[in-house]
């Protein structure tokens, strides 16, 4: 029995969002693959009831009625299915949402409560003036500190309580971003922005180093100037 459906664009986007939300909501639940697969099968079953003839296009209202029947993931996940409702303490993670290289500095920032920008500046200054020791420390941390992947980990990273309302908020934030990205799906420009972001950072870095060296150069120059002046 072949099951295929033709969806219009808005219906497809909504269904995709719903499935994504399911995955996020159940990401820490035992047997999540099975639960999601069962729900996907049920969606197919419900769509089959909607589909009256072979080339009928599934539209937005069809998907909406399917979602009404199934309910929103946050309404039907139960707390005992979810193993992340404990552990309120803050944890050190690499922050994948705010990073130039690995997200360690912004993770440290979240952990210590120091603003990430200051953390970066402190780190840079240390790296420049203590002959690269912080760079080795950085690489070690990169290897041992894991990235905050799940919504719960991202909340833990910021020391926020992990419960259904904070998770919901996080998911909503994420969906805002995702739908924005879907709206302007121009992957070339997306990769360009990423590149530009790191370019700006390295540009700032080089610029900063350049200024430091210039300053050192000027100081040496002054010394030299003084000496040659004395010699006269």
């Amino acid at each position: 029995m072949e099951l295929s459906f033709i969806l219009d664009e808005s219906a497809f986007n909504l269904l995709q969002q719903y499935l994504e939300k399911l995955k996020i909501t159940f990401s820490n639940t035992q047997g999540k693959e099975e639960i999601i697969e069962d729900i996907e099968n049920r969606i197919a079953e419900l769509l089959r009831e909607i589909k009256k003839h072979a080339d009928q296009v599934i539209v937005l209202s069809n998907i909406n009625s399917v979602i009404d029947t199934l309910g929103q993931p946050e309404d039907f996940i139960s707390e005992d299915d979810d193993q992340r409702f404990i552990r309120p303490e803050k944890k050190l993670f690499r922050n994948p949402e705010d990073r130039y290289i690995s997200g360690i500095i912004s993770g440290l920032g979240s952990y210590s409560g120091i603003e990430t920008i200051w953390m970066r500046i402190i780190w840079l200054i240390l790296a420049v003036f203590s002959l690269g020791v912080p760079i080795i420390v950085y690489i070690i941390m990169w290897a041992f500190i894991s990235e905050a992947k799940t919504t719960a980990e991202k909340l833990q990273m910021k020391g926020e309580p992990v419960n259904i309302s904070t998770i919901e908020r996080k998911i909503k934030e994420k969906f805002g971003e995702v739908s924005e990205k879907i709206k302007n799906t121009d992957y070339n420009s997306m990769t360009n922005t990423i590149k530009n972001k790191s370019k700006t950072f390295f540009f700032v870095l080089i610029n900063f180093l350049g200024k430091v060296f210039k300053l050192i150069g000027v100081m040496i120059g002054i010394q030299f100037h003084k000496k040659s002046w004395k010699n006269l």
Binding site: G31, T69, P73, D80
Partner: peptide, 16 residues
């Protein structure tokens, strides 16, 4: 049952 989704995590839990 209000929403159908409730049953899926439950069935999986009972099965596990």
């Amino acid at each position: 049952l209000v929403v159908e989704g409730t049953i899926y995590p439950l069935l999986t839990r009972l099965k596990n």
